[in-house]
């Protein structure tokens, strides 16, 4: 009877001992020195190498939505574009270079919407360390593209080109994932007329 009670008590205590073992077993116990205890879990985390250390080198790719008003001279011209931008990484992280492609629609007041495509390159300067994780930038933009639409039920294509300046910033959320916003002014020439284009862009990237 005494033996049976001993077995029951042992079975009851076994799960509790198994649960308690990881906390009780320390590094020294595992190495054969019961006096030494393992570092706490928070200390283990601190010792793990972290790739978040150091300043962020800036964005690599971005996807964004852009709004501008490319006037059609009749009150329309609201332009909504989806943009994709790829950044070239340099050893000097303050140097910011990128290639941009945008496509979307433009409201034409006297008819159906136009299709707009725009490509551009940007060269500028970005502050990667000063107020990390916020990376502001200023870039010079050279751009070109086309407006494809219908005028008097006939397809027309108008090419345009120009240059301008972009101001913006990225806010790093985690690792390379970041939010981005920018504002740019472009002076464009299309079909013999000049256009002042102000574009607002918001997006995210890696």
């Amino acid at each position: 009877m005494t033996r049976a009670v001993s077995i029951l008590v042992a079975l009851w205590l076994l799960p509790a001992a198994a649960l308690a073992q990881p906390a009780a077993l320390g590094l020294g116990r595992r190495l054969g020195d019961p006096a030494r205890t393992a570092p706490t879990s928070s200390a283990e985390e601190e010792e793990e190498p972290s790739d978040d250390e150091g300043p962020w080198a800036g964005p690599q790719i971005q996807m964004s939505y852009a709004y501008s008003k490319l006037s059609d001279a009749y009150g329309g011209g609201d332009t909504h574009l989806a943009a994709f931008e790829v950044f070239v990484q340099w050893p000097l992280s303050e140097l910011r270079t990128s290639v941009l492609a945008e496509a979307g629609g433009r409201d034409y007041a006297l008819g159906g919407d136009d299709f707009v495509f725009r490509a551009g390159v940007g060269i500028g300067f970005q502050l990667t360390e000063l107020i990390d994780p916020l990376v502001p930038h200023i870039s010079v933009i050279a751009t070109g593209g086309a407006v494809v639409g219908q005028r008097f039920d006939t397809s027309v294509v108008y090419g345009f080109g120009g240059a301008g300046l972009e101001l913006g910033a990225e806010l790093r959320v985690v690792r390379n994932l970041h939010l981005a916003a920018s504002f740019s002014y472009l002076r464009l020439e299309m079909d013999g007329a000049a256009f002042d284009l102000f574009e607002v862009r918001v997006g995210f990237g890696l």
Partner: peptide, 13 residues
Amino acid sequence: VSCAPSGDDPLSR
């Protein structure tokens, strides 16, 4: 570009 008429004017096109 700087001398071209403004695209806001319908007559420019």
